[in-house]
Amino acid sequence: MGVLELIQSLEGHKGRVWNVCWHPSGETLASCGEDKSIRIWMHDKSKWVIKSILLEGHSRTIREVSWSPCGNYIASCSFDATVAIWDQKSGQFECNTTLEGHENEVKSISWSTSGQLLATCSRDKSVWVWEVTDDDYECAAVINAHTQDVKKVRWHPEKDILASASYDDTVKIFKEDTSSSDFICVATLASHTSTVWSLSFDKTGNRLVTCSDDQTLKIWHQYEPGNEMGIPTPDNEPVWKCVCTLSGYHSRTVYDVDWCKLTGLIVTSCGDDVIRVFREEDDSDVHQPTFSLVCKLDNAHTQDVNCSQWNPVTPGLIASCSDDGTVKLWSYSD
């Protein structure tokens, strides 16, 4: 069994902390929440300290923050229906662009790996794709594929392929149609029996892990046309199959999941206040993989854990946040 050791608890937010996001360098962390602030934390000598607090970008809860791949921008989205883009050209972070268009709460935001596309989603059931050119943001697509709130959007680690998770219990995959240059839904992943709260690609982008209010995790595998398993691929589009369901581990809603691109470990954030780490077995068959729970920390937080993210550079380093108002840093070791 692995061990999660608390490195530090970061206090300062007032009320629920919804989301944390690591800077691509792994040296800085951003967090956001109910208090409408974004806090930026840095490692200084032996401990983590608050570096800046960004205020006045949003008039309601900030649901998610995301560093651009270049590390120079932060995008934030809020229940106030807007998206804010922060840059530090003046020496400190300032909100210089606000993106409007969603009808109500914007719940998730994600930069594509190239940094040229930004995706957002909302309770208005739509997913928007914005084209980024220098400091200009233009709406490239409004996708109305889900029948209910869209909870999460995440880009493929290499390609301009987008995945979204929804209150309609499904996950959808979108990509740009080469002929119409519009984003179209190319796959619907249906198997969860309640809201899908979050998802994460593995480092190759060929697999996805999803988490749900149905208290399970699911692993999905992409089968390309002409795959060796002989799985049919209608319309010559890749097909996503659920190849593993992890049930019986979580006792309440699973709010977030993150698949580590460095170690292949999966961390989950649950409404039962527990942080869990799963590892794929060494002899796991890719078409029927097996994962085992290698760490379970009860009372990781005193209330619901909303988000846990692996550091992109330091293996085993996790940042988590909770309804209890804290952000915590953990070190996982086998």
Partner: peptide
């Protein structure tokens, strides 16, 4: 049932 137990919707509604 789904709606009254979705904490994100609840949080947003109370704002």
């Amino acid at each position: 049932n789904k709606q009254v137990n979705d904490k994100e919707r609840i949080a947003a509604a109370m704002e």
